[in-house]
């Protein structure tokens, strides 16, 4: 009930759109707390950059998934398959262009990598479209079947990788100019990690612009909050969903290429393995929230890197502990999405 007369409310300044800051502060606080524990500043820098790089890659893989969930209440357990497929597809370009990759020329390295990423995103995008049509569409609104069937879809995709590329791991060396470290003071920073951070920031910025400056982006954000109203305004949310699904799959493919180069070996199960982190990230961030997903990814990766250094045994369960801690603080995740 509004009890204030309109004259008063209309003239009173509205509170500025309050930015929910506590989750934003968690990251720097965590990083600062880790510093004295680690003790050595250069080590801390190395670990932090490693964490940021890993976080960016996880964000790229997770962002599509969280939007897909927000928009249509669909949780795709097969999302990890796109990661693997993306990475393996990249080898179709990178292995024949081995010469370009090994050449001591940034331009040639970038061309080969760019081609590989383009192909990977194209293939995973197309695969996402097929996945949506064949696997996801028939089970809209049925959570139980959705979980089961997307899980099944992932198994099939993973096995098909084995059929096509054989059962063994595939080595994927980094291009020459991305190898090695940069020394900043005493801190050694791997070049590739900086590149991963840069790519992650670009993707985040692009996504931010699309979601805030384009009509499609506005529709996506509106649809996450209230899909029914978007339909009542005359837009087909199904079509919007397919767009997001395909884009999310392509991003997972991109994440797969980056992740594969980071690990320098590819296994069919790499997508399924990383999915565990991805799920933790989107739970921490708040299902459906891109911003939350971004912070969650960085948080998970930093915690993993710090604990990996400080207490390797705890590192194995650090993500779970982090998730528990966040959920105790905010049971719906860092940035819960307003629903209807």
């Amino acid at each position: 009930m509004t009890t204030t007369p309109p004259a008063a409310t209309a003239d009173a300044e509205l509170p500025r759109l309050r930015l929910d800051t506590p989750p934003l502060l968690v990251l720097p606080i965590l990083a600062l707390l880790a510093l004295p524990l680690i003790g050595s500043f250069p080590t801390w820098v190395t670990l932090t950059v490693a964490g940021l790089a890993m976080g960016m890659m996880i964000f790229i893989m997770a962002s599509g998934l969280t939007l897909v969930f927000g928009l249509m209440d669909v949780l795709n357990f097969g999302h990890g398959a796109f990661v693997s497929v993306g990475a393996f597809t990249a080898t179709l370009v990178l292995l024949p262009m081995q010469g370009w990759m090994q050449a001591d020329s940034v331009l040639m390295n970038l061309t080969a990598l760019g081609l590989a990423i383009a192909l990977a995103m194209l293939v995973t995008g197309a695969l996402g479209w097929a996945f949506e049509r064949i696997i996801v569409m028939p089970v809209y609104g049925q959570h139980l079947k959705q979980i089961l069937i997307t899980m099944g879809g992932m198994i099939v995709a993973e096995q098909m990788i084995h059929v096509v590329w054989g059962p063994d791991q595939i080595p994927l060396p980094l291009p020459t100019s991305f190898r090695g470290v940069i020394l900043v003071g005493d801190a050694a920073i791997e070049k590739y990690r900086l590149i991963a951070v840069a790519v992650g920031l670009v993707v985040f910025a692009a996504m931010f612009l699309v979601l805030n400056r384009t009509k499609v982006g506005l529709l996506i954000r509106a649809g996450v909050e209230n899909g029914e109203m978007v339909e009542a305004l005359g837009y087909r949310i199904r079509r919007l969903f397919v767009v997001v699904f395909v884009a999310g799959s392509a991003l997972a493919g991109l994440g797969g290429v980056l992740w594969g180069l980071y690990k320098e070996t590819l296994t069919a199960a790499m997508g399924a393995d990383i999915m565990v982190l991805v799920f933790i990230v989107i739970i921490i961030g708040g299902l459906g929230s891109v911003g939350g997903c971004f912070i969650g990814a960085l948080l998970v990766a930093l915690v993993a890197n710090y604990t990996g250094f400080l207490a390797p045994k705890i590192a194995l369960v650090s993500n779970i502990l982090l998730m528990v801690a966040i959920l105790l603080w905010r049971p719906q995740g860092l940035y819960p999405v307003a629903k209807r």
């Binding site: 949780l75 799920f279 779970i320 049971p331």
Partner: peptide, 24 residues
């Protein structure tokens, strides 16, 4: 929370447990 939450959390916990078992 939702059924979907439980599925994700059990997946995470179970995989952490499997890693733990093979690491220790």
């Amino acid at each position: 929370v939702k059924a979907i939450f439980y599925a994700m959390i059990t997946l995470a916990v179970a995989s952490a447990f499997a890693v733990l078992a093979s690491q220790l």
